[in-house]
């Protein structure tokens, strides 16, 4: 609880926002994941009612993909409402995912996972290959770095898939 709130407080400080948001890479791969972590670290209530799992999942996936649209990063820089939405929705996504994912079947989890892999691959290709500037507020070479990071993530996620396929995911 304390850790989560402390992290949130640190992220919301004007100085950390300015530093993290001045580079596309840190905005996307440091600030956003940390905001998500704020939600993940937030403690569970003792017993979470399992009734609204699918509502939670749809919210998580719908908003997670929303934050992957190049424009939303740009908008968060210039539009206060988008910035506020970012600081509310990402911790919420983290929390909802944490309390919900265990209730999903393995099949559904696998489906979501493969979707994520292909999404990361798509973004890697988009950011690496495009000659034009996708985010108006960031430099083109930063875009390339973001693309490269997406590529690395995709490779690792694929590697994990292969590991499950050939070795299995039993935790021994």
């Amino acid at each position: 609880m304390r850790l989560s709130l402390l992290l949130y407080f640190l992220l919301i400080l004007p100085i950390s926002r300015e530093v993290l948001e001045s580079y596309m890479v840190t905005h996307m791969f440091v600030q956003l994941p940390l905001l998500y972590a704020v939600g993940m670290l937030f403690p569970n209530r003792k017993e979470y009612k399992t009734r609204h799992i699918w509502s939670n999942i749809i919210f998580v996936l719908g908003l997670l993909s929303f934050w992957m649209v190049p424009r939303t990063l740009d908008d968060a820089l210039v539009n206060t409402y988008t910035e506020i939405l970012k600081f509310i929705s990402l911790p919420l996504i983290g929390y909802l995912w944490k309390v919900s994912w265990r209730h999903l079947s393995e099949m559904t989890l696998a489906f979501i996972y493969t979707q994520l892999v292909s999404m990361c691959g798509l973004f890697a290709w988009l950011y690496l290959d495009t000659p034009i500037q996708i985010c108006n507020n960031y430099l083109i070479n930063e875009q390339k770095i973001v693309g490269a990071i997406y590529l690395v993530i995709t490779i690792f996620m694929c590697g994990y898939l292969l590991k499950i396929a050939f070795i299995g995911n039993k935790k021994t």
Partner: peptide, 13 residues
Amino acid sequence: GTDGFTGFTQETA
């Protein structure tokens, strides 16, 4: 966020 699913980058918006 996308102006009615028309602007997916700030440039199109």
